[in-house]
Design a protein around this nucleic acid. Structure first.
Length: 130
DNA sequence: ATTCTCACA
DNA sequence: TGTGAGCA
């Protein structure tokens, strides 16, 4: 393992590992999703910070906002089975699914309107040639 | 190389 | 939701 010391990571190590910029990691901290320790001025990330970062990225892939991800991640209880957290996650996924379906309906309506506009424009052109 | 702040999309 | 610049 390329660890610096007692299971800690630097911001650049995490950035490299997850394919994001150090800027992004500091941004997440600013939004309250991660709270690394400080050794003087520099941030020292522990394994649990690394896990949180991984969960943030996972939430992003699922289409969750940082606020949504934070709400879910903050419920994680290292002890216990995290029943409440998992139920919250299921609720959020359900809401996201409904949101996507609504967007899907909206897109279909817009496509239909474009079809309509196309038909009208073509009809108008045809009258020119007649 | 790291931190912070301000501006910007 | 991030990024870039300029500073210390």
């Amino acid at each position: 393992m390329s660890t610096t010391a007692a299971d800690s990571y630097s911001i650049s190590e995490l950035a490299r590992e997850f394919g994001i910029t150090t800027r992004t990691i500091r941004f997440y901290e600013d939004k309250g999703l991660i709270s690394p320790e400080r050794r003087g001025q520099t941030r020292v990330y522990r394994p649990e910070d690394r896990v949180r970062l991984k969960l943030i990225l996972r939430g992003k892939r699922l289409g969750f906002s940082l606020d949504e991800s934070r709400e879910i991640i903050d419920m994680y209880d290292p002890a216990g089975g995290n029943v409440e957290q998992l139920n919250r996650l299921l609720d959020r996924i359900d809401a996201k699914r409904q949101q996507l379906r609504q967007q899907q309906r909206d897109i279909e309506k817009m496509l239909a309107q474009l079809d309509d506009a196309t038909a009208r424009a073509r009809a108008a052109l045809k009258e020119q040639s007649d």
